[in-house]
Nucleic acid binder design. Structure first.
Length: 289
DNA sequence: CTAGGATCCTGTCAGC
DNA sequence: TGCTGACAGGATCCTA
C-alpha cells in the first residue's frame, strides 16, 4: 500500500485539484468500498463542497462544507485519481493511473463540478471510504489508537515508550504497528532497520533506547526525504508511455533489492520472512545478536 | 495481556 | 499452454 509519504503525496495532489469543488453525484460500484451508503449518503455528500484534504498516518480525510467528512484508507492497492479539465492521479502503481477510467478496479466515482471525476480505484478491495460527521472522525478506533506522527515534538520519547509495551515482539512487527508510530509500512520498515543496522527479528527487549532512537530518526528522515523528493510515486509512474513507476528502484537501499549489493558494504541483500511479511536485509550489516 | 497465523480480495509471476 | 502455489507497499480477527 501506499505508506505515509505516498498518502501525503496524494493529499497534496488532491488539495491542488479538488478544493472548492462541489460533488454532483456518487456512484458506488462495490458496496464494501463505501460504508454509510443509502439515502444517508446521497443526502450528505451530493451537493457538498470539498473544503480541505487532511491526513493522519496513512488515512486521508476529505472535509466537506456541510460538517461531514470522507475518511479514506487506501490499504494495499487503493488509488485516488482525478480526471477532468486537469489530469492527475496517485496511488499504487498500476496502469489504471494512466489508462481509461473507470476500469475494472474502479470502486467509487465522485462526479465533481467542472466536468471532473474523482475515482477510487482498488484492485484488492481492502481499502475503504467512510462517510462521517466531521466531529466524529477522530473517534474512529483506528485513529484514536494511532501513534504519533513521525515529526511530532519528542517523537523519540513517545516512540520508545510505545515500543517498550511489546518487549517480546520482533522489532519489525512493532514499527509496522500503527499504534506505536503512524505511517510506517513494509518498505519504510525495511529501509529504517537497514539504516539503523538492526535485524528485523531482533526482540524489542534486546534493543537499548539508543537503538530505538536511531530507528525512529531513520524512519522520520527517510519518509521526509521521500515526501520532499517530489511525491516519490507521482512523477515516475504517471507517464504518458503507460509504464510502471520506478521510484522504488531509485529510492530504496534494500527494499526489493535482493541479490543486489548492500550500498554500505557490498554484501548481497537477501529476502527473508518476518512477521508474515517479505523482508529485505543486508546479512552483514544487520546481524541477529 | 501478548504473539503469531489466518483472513479479507484480485492479479501476477515463477515453476512445472 | 494451462495449472498451481506463492506472493503483493495493510490491518483485523481469532486462537493459544
Amino acid at each position: 500500500m501506499p505508506e505515509l509519504p505516498e498518502v501525503e503525496t496524494v493529499r497534496r495532489g488532491l488539495n491542488k485539484l479538488i478544493i472548492g469543488r462541489k460533488i454532483l453525484d456518487v456512484e458506488i460500484l462495490n458496496e464494501k468500498s463505501f460504508s454509510f451508503a443509502g439515502s444517508f449518503l446521497a443526502k450528505n455528500v451530493i451537493g457538498a463542497k470539498i473544503t480541505i484534504v487532511r491526513r493522519r498516518g496513512k488515512v486521508l480525510i476529505i472535509d466537506l462544507d456541510n460538517n461531514f467528512s470522507l475518511v479514506i484508507h487506501l490499504k494495499m492497492t487503493g488509488q485516488m485519481v482525478v480526471r477532468g479539465d486537469k489530469e492527475w492521479g496517485a496511488g499504487h502503481p498500476t496502469n489504471s493511473l494512466i489508462g481509461r477510467l473507470p476500469d475494472k478496479s474502479t470502486r467509487v466515482i465522485f462526479s465533481l463540478r467542472g466536468d471532473a471525476k474523482l475515482f477510487f480505484n482498488d484492485q484488492r478491495k481492502f481499502g475503504w471510504i467512510k462517510l462521517l460527521p466531521t466531529n466524529e472522525v477522530d473517534k474512529i478506533k483506528f485513529l484514536v489508537e494511532m501513534g504519533p506522527e513521525p515529526w511530532e515534538e519528542k517523537i523519540d520519547e513517545k516512540f520508545t515508550k510505545n515500543v517498550r509495551r511489546h518487549g517480546n515482539s520482533m522489532i519489525k512487527s512493532i514499527i509496522l504497528n500503527q499504534s506505536v508510530i503512524a505511517g510506517i509500512g513494509n518498505i519504510y520498515a525495511d529501509e529504517s532497520l537497514w539504516m539503523a543496522k538492526i535485524h528485523p527479528k531482533t526482540r524489542v527487549k534486546n534493543l537499548p533506547d539508543k537503538k530505538l532512537k536511531e530507528i525512529c530518526h531513520a524512519a522520520g528522515e527517510i519518509m521526509q526525504k521521500s515526501i520532499d523528493s517530489g511525491g516519490s510515486t507521482m512523477q515516475t509512474y504517471v507517464r504518458a508511455d503507460g509504464t510502471r513507476g520506478d521510484y522504488l528502484e531509485k529510492f530504496a537501499n534494500v527494499f526489493n533489492r535482493q541479490g543486489q549489493p548492500c550500498p554500505r558494504c557490498k554484501t548481497l541483500i537477501i529476502k527473508i520472512k518476518v512477521a508474515g511479511r517479505g523482508t529485505h536485509i543486508c546479512p552483514k550489516c544487520q546481524k541477529l545478536s
